[in-house]
Write a protein that binds this DNA or RNA. Structure first.
Lengths: 184, 184
DNA sequence: CGTGCAGAGTTGACGCGTCAACTGTATGAA
DNA sequence: TTCATACAGTTGACGCGTCAACTCTGCACG
């Protein structure tokens, strides 16, 4: 046996996985039911909303979300077909200049923020004591630091992107943060 | 504003989601790369392996895993087509009597256990101090208790099922625990 | 007998996420 | 100019997971 886990360790792993799945499902359901968007879509919309000019290139969006580009691209395809975002029609050069938020997308995300925040609080934050929060934060950072270097893709080093007051890569990128000024 | 989260709260949520996704992906990749099975498949195989007679009905399997039946059914379809499990051909009555582990399935899960355990330790357990582990455990149980009552389906109340020394529902159901005796 | 109902299990559609392969543009060297 | 290369973005296939609808069996009640 190269490696084994104690029953307690297995149980911790399983309980944690179970909790995570229930939580994500519940949060997702809330978003879907009340606002017609998924958690992933919410992340994209929020990120776009706070971008300068409500417009980003796919790569920057992916970087900002710490997601793979193909994931973003697929999601954008679905979102575009539903009218939440629009891919800038290839400029004169044939090069796409970015993707932008539509009016519908803007309205959707703005109406969703509070409800989503409420669910995040209800299911994630509420049952969390300050010590537990600190523990989870510390552990999450450990995990990210340990795993992220392994995969070349989708590393979230917020370089340019000026607009985001975020310190670090987010997964869900679910934070509304500032909110893009009318932005030009 | 009905609800808002502070930037710190959003960041905690995002960091945690990000960490979780990286972790799951890495663990899944390891299983897939080294043993040709997914994390979900591993859970099914382990649960089956420790069942009496290496055989369970779909519903009991779902209950034991705290998964939805349809999820289990879809997964079983994929696994059956690859020869890891077999659906008992409808008995005389036309009623399916359960699904069982094939020899291939047994070999797959037994060879995978150590490697998987190693990855769980490396990515999940290692960066966890005992205090953090306790915090995560307590919080996970809170979350499960809070959310599970909401959804009627897939509630893991280990009732019969005699064989499992598990105290509680597992998500990944990734614990090898005892290991079914030859059980013939 | 027949109707209705409940439980077990399956199915199809669909969204999410990964992977690998692909297109198209720009750039730099021979 | 032409070829190589790198980068940005897209696509298709596929597995996972959810939901709603469906089938099939058994059972109770009339």
């Amino acid at each position: 046996m190269a490696e084994t886990l104690t029953p307690e360790e297995w149980e911790l792993w399983d309980t944690w996985m179970h909790a995570h799945r229930l939580l994500v499902r519940e949060v997702d359901r809330g978003l879907q039911r009340d606002f017609g968007i998924s958690k992933a879509e919410f992340s994209v919309l929020v990120t776009l909303r706070q971008a300068p000019g409500r417009r980003l290139r796919v790569g920057d969006l992916a970087e900002s979300l710490a997601w793979e580009k193909s994931r973003v691209s697929h999601l954008l395809t679905r979102m575009e077909s539903r009218g939440f975002v629009e891919r800038a029609e290839s400029g004169a050069s044939g090069r796409r200049t970015g993707i932008g938020l539509t009016e519908k997308g803007r309205r959707a995300v703005e109406s969703a923020i509070d409800g989503h925040a409420g669910n995040v609080r209800r299911y994630f934050l509420d049952p969390l004591t300050p010590e537990q929060a600190a523990a989870i934060r510390a552990w999450s950072e450990q995990v990210v630091d340990r795993i992220e270097p392994l995969c070349g893709d989708a590393v979230a080093k917020p370089s340019s992107l000026g607009a985001a007051p975020r310190p670090e890569g987010w997964e869900g990128a679910s934070g509304p943060a500032g909110g893009a000024q009318p932005a030009g």
